[in-house]
Simulated assay, not measured.
Amino acid sequence: MSSQTSHSGNILVVDDSPDNVFLIKTILEEEGYIINTAENGFSALAQLQALPCDLVLLDLMMPGMDGYEVTRRIRGEMQLQQYIPILLITAHDTPNVARGLDLGADDFIRKPVTVDELLARVRSLLRLKRSMDERDEIARQREDFVSRLTHDLRTPLVAADRMLTLFQQGALGTLSPQMQEAIVIMARSNINLLSMVNTLLEVYRFEAGRKTLAFQPVDLSQLLQEVVGELTPLAQPKGLIINLDFDYTADSSTVSGDRLELHRLFTNLISNAIKFTESGSVNIRLKNQISSQSPPTAKITDYITVEIADTGRGIPAAEQATLFERFRQGSHKISGSGLGLYLSRRIVEAHHGSIVVNSELGKGSIFIVSLPIKQ
């Protein structure tokens, strides 16, 4: 056995030539690697689905399903939990290796393979695999830590909110005007902090795949009226007018969705419109939209569109491109954590819809949410 037997890993060798498989398997087993084999692309995909490996050695030219198609499916359709490097094995007279790399392969080696080159490329890709696994594990641990932290933070914040409410109600004795003012400020700050913690917790639930939506028929016109009723007290001190403009000629304003999450979505968008508008109005329009998909024979999908327009200062064009990314704070002096719009986007996408923004400095912003009537 070779002096470099310290390496380990499970490797899948995919080749329709038994001689090539035997040669590569013999070389790699001498190094202590565990080798599984597949004689075609279909068998390789089935094995990967059942038991992912650490590296795939993939012949580029095979009958039935070539290495290009296998690579495309591994990278595009299989949605494996961990990244698996792909090493293409190609003949010298196959020039279009670039296509395989563009589809997601990590490296290639030409036949006839030499022992030293094969082992060097295998070791290199297994190092890549280990580093990516370590990175993913660190990311998972970080997300789990943040999720646990935010969950634990909610308990004292909720308790503080209840105690402050009791103080404001006079349940714990009469307060002086100065104390009442201080309690109001403390309660407002506590509510803001609790809202940020709740948003962060929801974001990590989505990202960790722990978010389960309960789909049911939701009447958007009724939901929007409910949200506006809850948020009107925020608009009154500024003298803002909230206008509801519903297209009642539409057949239906009902979508299939998670009512709690849609409530969270529109609460966030409408409260943002109020927060960033100093004077004027917030206009909420609900209407039907028909979108024909390509190709022409595809099913025509009906959408309900909700437009939330404000008369605020607007959003700079440079910020609009990244507005729905996580931790992207705006340049406005009262911008928040940068998670609210990211969470809004995740909620919309979970409902198979879309969200976009149109804005011009000095003329306000329009957030447009489109949700399919039927899913």
Rank of each mutant, 00 (worst) to 15 (best):
137 E>A: 14
219 D>W: 03
316 P>N: 06
315 I>H: 04
50 A>V: 08
188 R>W: 01
79 Q>P: 00
171 A>D: 03
308 I>Y: 05
157 L>V: 05
189 S>R: 13
42 F>C: 06
177 P>R: 08
125 L>H: 04
364 G>Y: 13
235 A>Q: 01
372 P>R: 02
206 F>K: 01
120 A>T: 13
348 V>E: 09
270 I>S: 06
148 R>V: 06
216 Q>K: 15
343 L>S: 09
101 L>V: 10
40 N>I: 01
354 S>V: 09
260 L>D: 12
247 D>T: 05
121 R>I: 10
266 F>Y: 14
262 L>N: 10
35 I>T: 07
234 L>D: 13
153 L>E: 12
292 S>R: 15
337 S>C: 07
147 S>W: 06
199 T>R: 06
242 I>R: 01
326 R>N: 08
272 N>P: 07
316 P>V: 03
195 S>H: 12
254 T>Y: 01
252 S>I: 06
212 T>G: 01
240 L>Q: 03
232 T>R: 14
304 I>P: 02
323 L>E: 04
320 Q>D: 08
162 R>D: 12
212 T>R: 14
333 K>E: 14
279 S>K: 12
207 E>D: 14
353 G>N: 07
39 E>S: 12
80 L>S: 07
71 T>I: 05
264 R>P: 00
43 S>G: 11
25 K>D: 11
52 P>G: 08
154 R>D: 06
43 S>K: 11
13 V>A: 03
155 T>R: 15
357 V>W: 01
173 G>T: 02
335 S>K: 04
266 F>Q: 10
325 E>S: 13
273 A>T: 01
369 V>A: 02
266 F>N: 12
355 I>M: 15
42 F>M: 11
164 L>T: 03
81 Q>T: 12
273 A>G: 09
267 T>K: 12
235 A>V: 08
341 L>P: 01
296 P>F: 06
26 T>A: 13
116 D>E: 15
34 I>S: 13
200 L>I: 10
313 R>D: 13
238 K>N: 05
192 N>W: 01
305 T>E: 15
331 S>K: 07
14 V>Y: 03
252 S>H: 06
339 L>Y: 01
48 L>A: 01
323 L>T: 01
115 V>R: 14
155 T>L: 11
355 I>N: 11
270 I>K: 06
219 D>S: 13
216 Q>P: 00
44 A>D: 08
35 I>K: 03
35 I>V: 11
121 R>S: 08
288 N>Y: 00
14 V>D: 03
66 D>A: 11
339 L>V: 13
355 I>F: 05
324 F>E: 05
278 E>C: 09
314 G>R: 10
215 F>M: 14
252 S>V: 07
266 F>I: 04
287 K>V: 01
94 T>I: 13
40 N>W: 08
164 L>P: 00
70 V>R: 03
337 S>P: 09
68 Y>N: 11
154 R>F: 05
116 D>Q: 14
58 L>P: 09
134 E>T: 05
176 S>Y: 00
108 F>R: 02
187 A>I: 00
171 A>I: 08
265 L>N: 09
97 V>G: 04
113 V>G: 04
24 I>G: 02
